[in-house]
Deep mutational scan, measured.
Amino acid sequence: TLFEALYDYEARTEDDLSFHKGEKFQILNSSEGDWWEVRSLTTGETGYIPSPYLA
């Protein structure tokens, strides 16, 4: 399933992933509550992002 970022986000820890509004992601793991592990389709990087920032 693909999701798109609604807002920009700046990583706060080394496990987080910074991203920009409009960036698209593949969800790798959504079992961690509000923090999902994703792969950016723009950069190929993986990390955790806050799920409320996605649509």
Rank of each mutant, 00 (worst) to 15 (best):
T1G: 09
T1I: 11
L2P: 05
L2Q: 06
L2F: 13
F3V: 06
F3H: 04
F3Q: 02
E4D: 04
E4Q: 09
E4P: 02
A5S: 04
A5F: 14
A5C: 07
L6S: 06
L6K: 11
L6M: 10
L6F: 13
L6Y: 07
L6E: 13
Y7Q: 13
Y7L: 07
Y7M: 07
Y7K: 05
Y7G: 04
Y7P: 00
Y7S: 06
Y7D: 07
D8S: 08
Y9S: 02
Y9G: 01
E10N: 09
E10W: 10
E10D: 14
E10S: 09
E10P: 03
E10T: 11
E10R: 10
E10F: 12
E10G: 03
E10M: 10
A11V: 14
A11L: 12
A11P: 03
R12W: 13
R12Y: 07
R12H: 09
R12G: 07
R12M: 11
T13V: 08
T13G: 14
E14C: 11
E14I: 09
E14R: 10
E14T: 12
E14Q: 11
D15E: 13
D15N: 14
D15A: 12
D15G: 14
D16Y: 13
D16S: 14
D16T: 14
L17E: 01
L17T: 15
S18R: 02
F19Y: 07
F19I: 06
F19V: 08
F19L: 03
H20M: 10
H20P: 04
H20Q: 09
H20E: 05
H20L: 10
H20C: 12
H20S: 10
H20K: 14
K21S: 05
K21E: 03
K21H: 03
K21F: 12
G22Y: 08
G22P: 02
G22H: 03
E23Q: 06
E23H: 06
E23K: 02
E23M: 05
K24L: 15
F25G: 00
F25M: 02
Q26E: 14
Q26F: 14
Q26K: 05
I27H: 01
L28D: 00
L28N: 01
L28A: 01
N29Q: 06
N29G: 09
S30H: 08
S30M: 13
S30T: 12
S30K: 11
S30C: 12
S31D: 10
S31C: 11
S31P: 07
S31M: 10
S31Q: 09
E32K: 12
E32Y: 12
E32V: 10
E32Q: 13
E32R: 14
G33C: 11
G33L: 08
G33V: 09
G33S: 10
G33E: 11
G33M: 08
D34H: 09
D34T: 09
D34V: 09
D34E: 10
W35L: 08
W35T: 14
W35K: 08
W35R: 14
W35E: 03
W36G: 00
W36P: 00
W36Q: 00
W36A: 00
W36I: 06
W36V: 05
W36H: 00
E37Y: 15
E37L: 15
E37M: 14
E37G: 01
E37T: 12
E37V: 10
E37A: 06
E37R: 11
V38G: 02
V38N: 00
V38F: 15
V38L: 01
R39E: 05
S40E: 01
S40F: 03
S40M: 04
S40A: 07
S40V: 05
S40C: 05
S40Y: 02
L41I: 08
L41A: 11
L41D: 10
T42C: 08
T42P: 00
T42W: 15
T43Y: 01
T43R: 01
T43S: 08
E45F: 09
E45Q: 13
E45R: 14
T46E: 06
T46H: 07
T46I: 11
T46V: 13
G47K: 05
G47A: 03
G47I: 06
G47W: 13
G47F: 09
Y48S: 03
Y48L: 11
Y48I: 08
I49T: 01
I49A: 09
I49L: 03
I49F: 01
I49R: 03
P50M: 12
S51G: 09
S51L: 04
S51Y: 09
S51M: 05
P52D: 14
Y53G: 05
Y53I: 07
Y53S: 08
Y53N: 07
L54R: 06
L54I: 09
L54P: 05
L54V: 08
L54N: 08
L54E: 03
A55T: 11
A55R: 08
A55E: 08
A55D: 08
A55L: 10
A55M: 12
